[in-house]
Design a protein around this nucleic acid. Structure first.
Lengths: 342, 342
DNA sequence: TTATTTTAGGCAATCGATTGCTTTTGTTAA
DNA sequence: TTAACAAAAGCAATCGATTGCCTAAAATAA
């Protein structure tokens, strides 16, 4: 492919018999250029269709106004919304986003981190992959001196900026709501416990049981029921127990809740009368299932905005010895028909 | 924020008493470095935690292995999936994506184009915003010598690479299917006609009517029914006509179809018996509504992959006078309950 | 052993914008 | 008219990696 040579400040300088430095100053509207020549330069730049080469500018200034984002999948509602929220703020500040997907693979996550650090991005925002174990690559980000913000799924032990959801209290609230609705044998579909969010949701579930003096029944706690299919399988198993649960808290996702609902419908078990179902994430479909599914909204767009704002506020406050801020957002329980017994 | 100085090839060269050029060659595994020193350099680079500065490399080589993507919203299923598809291929090739949202605003789209061209991205991939009118900014991309790929929503008149959906034939197929199911007064919810995709879908609708010798009834064609709310409003209006339609083709989106379904349910009109409904896009919820909604799948991930592959194939074929390739994908009609009368 | 060819590595320019410092020009005050 | 100062513009180094060209050293051939 042909690459026509692009106009540089040297071309403008030569044409006007000026020095490139003056052209640069004029374009950046900085001091020491007379108004007349500034006008002239701007006009000529326009005429010659000049576009700044921000790669060169980045190299010189060491600041590339780019933020890297690493998420498991961009085509998942939650992450897509978080990114949209981040972008809303960064765009206003003239920053760009470079987006990478880890595809839930730690190995690929490491590669993403490398590409971003090589690019000298101004900041890296990450939500770690499902098989995350070793935070070595995250530490290397800090070693490079690049600000790091973890969100949602984080390496707890790492001292970085964080934007979190209060999963524990949200889960607790959800389970308490179910208990108040009269459910007594509440099953839990849990996610991989190496991820903080799933540990917290489980903790919330246990706390709610404890609060109401309900027993913890191990056979009602099902590991790794993350997808619709796994949720369905787990539900089928649960409902075939000699003492089946009267409610299911799909702490992993709304998809698992949907799987549960489909199995219940298929087995002719009435929701919410015979079985209560609560999901997690407020996916758009939860509103339109029959019955609609009670779930937890994570305010994903707000989360994105919060993340970006955190970065810019840190950027301004150049106090050298400050603590890494942790912001926790409160998710919201959305009560719908799938748990309304009364 | 503190920015510890990063290790450069000069640091490595100094430490080993070598020339930076040798370090560069060793790191790039190019010729003219002995195996011994190459090993030594790689080992030292590793030890010193060296990371290439790809900004500097980009400036020198003029190739930054970055592709810019501009879409209206990244948190819309179709676009999120297309991007995921693009990323799948570009990642393999060692390219990065810079993603921008136009938020359906032409003005903002122009700004996105500017940021991307300033960054000298290797390619720009775009699906234009809803209020798109003037392709000036797209032409400027070509003037800068940056390859441009338009997809889905495109400026027809502009000679660029394109990846399209065959909206017309898909819409025609959908409407023919409805006619075969016995629907006779089929309404159309249409989108902004400045966008090619909506013009094509309308054309498909008209072609189907023509094929079966059905009359075109202007009062059954509703403009700008794009969202769930607008779809609902339009449906309410349609169903209150003296001669209401017996089917609705929501060519704008599944959301409009969902709005239609909700209004029908609310008015106690049976779907599909009294009213057939067909959407567009195969959003995940269409499968789980009651009844499930007939729709058109656009193979969005495949589209993304196709776009990326198109870029790389063009990159290889450096024939200087070639035509801009146009790839058209065939969407797939997904027949569900909302149109199955028989 | 000498001549010739490879191979390894060094030198220095380059990509394009930015910026501290110096010089020139212009303006004002003495 | 000249000195003093400010404003405007020029000079040149810099950011870090890459690469064409050149030289020195090593390997091979004569």
């Amino acid at each position: 492919m042909k690459q026509p040579k692009r106009v540089t400040i040297y071309d403008i300088a030569k044409k006007l018999n000026l020095n490139p430095s003056s052209v640069s100053r004029a374009l950046n509207n900085s001091a020491n250029v007379s108004t007349t020549t500034k006008q002239l330069i701007l006009k000529t730049a326009e005429e010659m269709n000049y576009k700044v080469n921000s790669v060169a500018a980045s190299l010189r200034t060491g600041n590339n106004q780019t933020i890297g984002v690493i998420v498991p999948h961009i085509n998942q509602n939650f992450f897509a919304n978080v990114i949209a929220g981040i972008e809303e703020v960064t765009y206003e500040m003239g920053y760009n986003l470079v987006i990478c997907q880890s595809h839930e693979s730690a190995a690929r996550e490491v590669q993403c981190v490398n590409t971003l650090t090589n690019q000298h991005v101004s900041c890296i925002i990450i939500s770690v992959s499902a098989d995350f174990e070793d935070p070595g690559h995250l530490e290397s980000i800090r070693k490079q001196g690049i600000p790091l913000i973890q969100f949602d799924r984080v390496a707890d032990e790492l001292d970085t900026m964080k934007v979190l959801n209060d999963n524990e209290s949200a889960a607790m609230e959800a389970v308490c709501h179910m208990i108040k609705e009269g459910y007594k044998r509440i099953a839990l579909l849990e996610g991989p416990q190496n991820l903080n969010i799933f540990r917290q949701r489980k903790a919330g579930y246990l706390a709610a049981l404890k609060k109401y003096d309900l027993p913890i029944i191990p056979e009602l706690i099902v590991e790794n029921a993350w997808t619709k299919e796994l949720g369905a399988t787990a539900t089928r198993k649960l409902l075939n127990l000699s003492e089946p649960p009267d409610a299911i808290f799909a702490s992993t996702s709304d998809f698992a809740a949907l799987g549960a609902l489909e199995v219940a419908t298929e087995m002719n078990i009435q929701v919410p009368k015979q079985l209560g179902i609560c999901g997690y994430s407020n996916e758009s479909f939860t509103e339109i299932t029959n019955p609609s599914i009670t779930t937890i909204d994570q305010h994903s767009i707000l989360m994105g905005k919060t993340i970006a704002q955190l970065y810019f506020s840190e950027l301004k406050s150049d106090v050298s010895n400050h603590k890494n801020q942790i912001v926790t957002l409160k998710p919201e329980l959305i009560i719908r028909k799938s748990t309304k017994r009364h």
